[in-house]
């Protein structure tokens, strides 16, 4: 019944036997104790569980842990680099892009996918890219600004580098 999986999560390799029906989000939360990834719905709409699998944003509630076998996973816990916040994390804080914080990890991970593809998105592009992430607190206004903040910061960093 149980299947062995090997995954790298936030740079660390793990190997576990999992029940095939275990969703990736449950594996992250219950087995690895990475509770920064949240579950907000059961129909793959709200995006609270968004993480990066092999660099792409996915809804970890709609992926079995066994499907992620052999993959590279990044969660909110892996975004900061040695204590230095990722520009998106910084952006959400600077621009007040969060209130209750529950949707925030998913929102940040989805934004990371966006900035990877489109380092300089317009407001419209940001809003479209976040259509798969619900926020009930902010009205999205400051989330858009947070992503813009990060985009600017990343482009500056790259210029320096």
């Amino acid at each position: 019944m149980a299947k062995k999986i090997q995954v790298t999560v936030n740079g660390k390799a793990y190997s576990h036997d999992v029940d095939p029906r275990t969703l990736l989000v449950q594996y992250l939360r219950d087995v690895l104790g990475l509770t920064g990834t949240h579950v907000g719905c059961d129909t793959s709409n709200c995006g609270a569980c968004t993480i990066l699998v092999d660099g792409q944003a996915v809804k970890s509630c709609t992926l079995l842990a066994v499907q992620a076998d052999g993959s590279e996973v990044k969660t909110i816990e892996g975004m900061a680099d040695n204590g230095t916040l990722h520009p998106l994390q910084e952006g959400f804080r600077e621009e007040h892009g969060l209130q209750c914080g529950f949707c925030t990890p998913g929102m940040i991970m989805a934004s990371a996918d966006l900035l990877e593809r489109n380092p300089n998105p317009t407001e419209h592009e940001i809003r479209e890219a976040l259509e798969g992430n619900f926020c009930r607190c902010t009205g999205y206004h400051n989330i858009v600004k947070s992503v813009q903040y990060a985009a600017k910061k990343i482009s500056k960093q790259e210029k320096v580098a």
């Binding site: 990475l34 509770t35 920064g36 990834t37 969660t75 909110i76 816990e77 975004m79 900061a80 916040l85 994390q89 959400f92 804080r93 969060l98 914080g101 529950f102 925030t104 990890p105 940040i108």
Partner: peptide, 10 residues
């Protein structure tokens, strides 16, 4: 409070 929320530590 943001520090814990943006790092997944809420």
């Amino acid at each position: 409070e943001d520090k814990r929320f943006i790092t997944g530590k809420g």
